[in-house]
Amino acid sequence: MNRLPASQFLDDAGLNRQHVFDLAALPADLLAPLQPRAHECRLILFGHAGRRLWECVQAEGLRREHPIDEYSVRTVESWLANALPAAQARFVFPAALGTVQVGLQRLGALAGWHHAAPFMVGVDAKWGSWFAYRAVILIDTALPVSEPEDLGHPCSGCKEKTCITACTAGALTEGVFNGPRCRAGRLAETSPCALGCLARMACPVGTEHRYEESQIRHSAAGSLAVLRRYAGLV
């Protein structure tokens, strides 16, 4: 497996998943929105898995509106400055910096990280659903391209399907995710899943990597605020 230069810095900072793509080899519909420039030849996807990134963010304090995004960008910028000081790099994600739509789940699937789960969060055989995509850059440096991981789809051998029965909103019972039921369940006045998906927490894969309760609540509070605005409750 090819590793980025100074990748230990990224691992220690919590961005412990990195994948280098040959920009020209990406599917056309995934590549086109990125509007690559002539000098750009690689795309690097940065993610975090497990608890380390949140520990680092908490150590800095949660004073800003988007502390994880801002921490992730600063970390990648520091890595670039030290590991590839001559490189020209352009962020296309997080959304606050990027001006294009980035197919994060598609990239994750191509990297071998992302498999579809009934509860609509990507799941990985090692980390479960306790990982996320944190930054994407386009770069002019011909770094070695990463090989996709192949740990298999963890849901294929799961017989209990505890995630389906754990969803009190009944959003998973028909075999296809029911978005309206999920939204109604989260927005209910006494919702048990407003600040944390019960189906996700019932998944037995990667439970040793489950986020701290404070991170679960922080992320869920952000999505809940979006749902409330969408529903005209704010």
Results as ranks from 00 to 15, higher is better:
residue 173 T to M: 12
residue 97 L to H: 02
residue 172 L to M: 11
residue 24 A to Y: 01
residue 46 F to G: 05
residue 126 K to D: 12
residue 65 E to Y: 09
residue 180 P to Y: 01
residue 50 G to L: 05
residue 197 C to M: 08
residue 181 R to N: 11
residue 51 R to L: 14
residue 85 P to W: 05
residue 119 F to C: 07
residue 33 P to K: 01
residue 189 E to L: 08
residue 118 P to T: 02
residue 17 R to F: 09
residue 221 A to W: 07
residue 187 L to Q: 00
residue 35 Q to L: 13
residue 181 R to L: 13
residue 93 F to A: 06
residue 147 E to I: 13
residue 163 C to H: 04
residue 164 I to A: 08
residue 43 L to Q: 04
residue 99 T to R: 13
residue 218 H to C: 02
residue 209 H to T: 09
residue 142 A to I: 11
residue 104 L to N: 08
residue 172 L to R: 07
residue 127 W to I: 07
residue 156 S to Y: 15
residue 136 V to S: 08
residue 107 L to I: 13
residue 50 G to E: 00
residue 43 L to R: 05
residue 42 R to Q: 03
residue 94 P to Y: 02
residue 199 A to P: 01
residue 117 A to C: 02
residue 87 A to P: 02
residue 206 G to V: 00
residue 218 H to N: 03
residue 199 A to R: 00
residue 68 I to M: 11
residue 198 L to I: 00
residue 137 I to G: 04
residue 94 P to K: 01
residue 149 E to V: 12
residue 93 F to W: 10
residue 204 P to K: 05
residue 39 H to M: 13
residue 11 D to W: 15
residue 78 S to I: 06
residue 164 I to S: 05
residue 6 A to M: 15
residue 231 A to N: 03
residue 68 I to W: 02
residue 43 L to T: 06
residue 79 W to F: 11
residue 191 S to I: 00
residue 100 V to D: 05
residue 90 R to L: 03
residue 132 A to C: 09
residue 210 R to C: 13
residue 207 T to D: 10
residue 198 L to F: 01
residue 102 V to Q: 06
residue 145 V to P: 09
residue 32 A to F: 06
residue 35 Q to M: 12
residue 181 R to W: 08
residue 159 K to I: 12
residue 41 C to R: 14
residue 234 V to H: 09
residue 63 R to E: 15
residue 87 A to Y: 10
residue 210 R to G: 09
residue 180 P to L: 03
residue 134 R to L: 11
residue 111 A to F: 09
residue 63 R to S: 15
residue 41 C to M: 13
residue 132 A to Y: 11
residue 88 Q to H: 14
residue 109 A to S: 13
residue 47 G to F: 07
residue 53 L to G: 08
residue 95 A to F: 01
residue 170 G to A: 08
residue 209 H to Y: 14
residue 165 T to G: 13
residue 225 A to Q: 12
residue 34 L to W: 04
residue 69 D to M: 03
residue 178 N to T: 05
residue 98 G to Y: 01
residue 199 A to E: 00
residue 130 W to M: 03
residue 180 P to F: 05
residue 20 V to N: 02
residue 52 R to M: 15
residue 141 T to Q: 15
residue 81 A to F: 01
residue 206 G to S: 03
residue 62 L to K: 03
residue 57 V to I: 10
residue 36 P to G: 07
residue 168 T to V: 13
residue 101 Q to T: 15
residue 105 Q to L: 15
residue 21 F to C: 00
residue 134 R to W: 02
residue 145 V to F: 05
